[in-house]
Design a protein around this nucleic acid. Sequence first.
DNA 1: GACAAACTGTAACACATGTTACCTTCCGCT
DNA 2: AGCGGAAGGTAACATGTGTTACAGTTTGTC
Lengths: 218, 218
Amino acid sequence: MLKDNQLEVLLHEKFQYVFEADLLKEILKYGTFREIEPDKTLMDIGDSISQMPLLISGSIKIIREDKSGNELLLYYLEVGDTCAMTINCTMGKKKSEIRAVTEELTKLIFIPVHKMDEWLVKFQTWRTFILDSYNTRLMEAIDAIDNLAFHNMEQRIYKYLWDKALVTGTQVLRLTHAQIANDLNSSRVVISRLMKKLEKDGKIKYDRNQIEVKKAEI
Amino acid sequence: MLKDNQLEVLLHEKFQYVFEADLLKEILKYGTFREIEPDKTLMDIGDSISQMPLLISGSIKIIREDKSGNELLLYYLEVGDTCAMTINCTMGKKKSEIRAVTEELTKLIFIPVHKMDEWLVKFQTWRTFILDSYNTRLMEAIDAIDNLAFHNMEQRIYKYLWDKALVTGTQVLRLTHAQIANDLNSSRVVISRLMKKLEKDGKIKYDRNQIEVKKAEI
DNA sequence: GACAAACTGTAACACATGTTACCTTCCGCT
DNA sequence: AGCGGAAGGTAACATGTGTTACAGTTTGTC
């Protein structure tokens, strides 16, 4: 746990240009801070949610799964993001349709539901934040649809790697072909085959457990 | 054009349980009514939007297109819906990422942008409505992702037909294989092939320009 | 009735992706 | 050093989907 003043410093650092001063105070007052290790499931399909998370640092994978257990990575949440799903899960008392897994060490503030609605009335910046969040998520979902509908697996792999490089802030990734296959709902053999092709085309370079992504056209 | 009192009757009929009385009055005062024929493009990719539509009757197809002109039907808007895209396009002054085409004769009320934000502060029912809209759209986008990621073309065709039956309110549809191919970003031959199979399995029945959808498991 | 256009059926083939099986290489452990 | 497991390479094949080409049928129009 952080001391209050440390949390305050963090909040200001990340959100001073997003939220007005009074709102920052309220967040500090009513929010609950939590720090979560990498690869922890924050929320699973079917869970009910009573608090809304606000991402302070780290990143979170949002994953969709069908009944047979096939998975698909939808998008990442990063600093300053919130989970749009949660917004309505909390407001509408519905169950989660997705799984959220921390990608790295992640710091969050949880906001109680009743404050969410209250702040929509009181704070212009909160309204903008919530609507922006929804919109960003909707765009990301549509981006995911584009990938599936209009791009082949080779393009999807490259985009997956590049996105991951952006999120983690490094072009050298530590991950295996099997992990990629899992996130893209494909199979390891297919990934290996196409990785070879991507390397031949100079778009990536890789060794066991390590992939370097180069900037390239999709 | 409708006379004011006719519009009032319509609005009440559709929204009396959604919006509080004062809000209905404001909508009548500041909204602009429009009636639009089937198969008209309401909004195209790259358009700027300055008004938010509220669907009174009819239905609207939301379509995504890539740079090469390949199309994909995302979902339908129905009575009581609004276009979530628009919400942020108006607020954030961004351009549309999708195309909206009327499926049938459609009645709409357009709301000026500045009222949107004002009402978020003043009316609880408006807040709920906007957040619900976003959430519904996000769920529909995720549903579209599920289809693409986890279902084969045969299942996608059946779901497409069943959804269309729900939207239009009849299990007998007037459409061609080529139209289906277009909406699913496939090709006519593929659709014909799989339609044959669906018919053999008793899930549909069809003739030239006409398809009867039967209730079946996906 | 003749004709053109639209709609559907079908075959043959190309290509992308998934599956299975087995092999090699690398790495950590004892 | 030897072992076992994890990661990756490769081949052979199965399947799903897209493409091209052409034929047959229906529909509307003159």
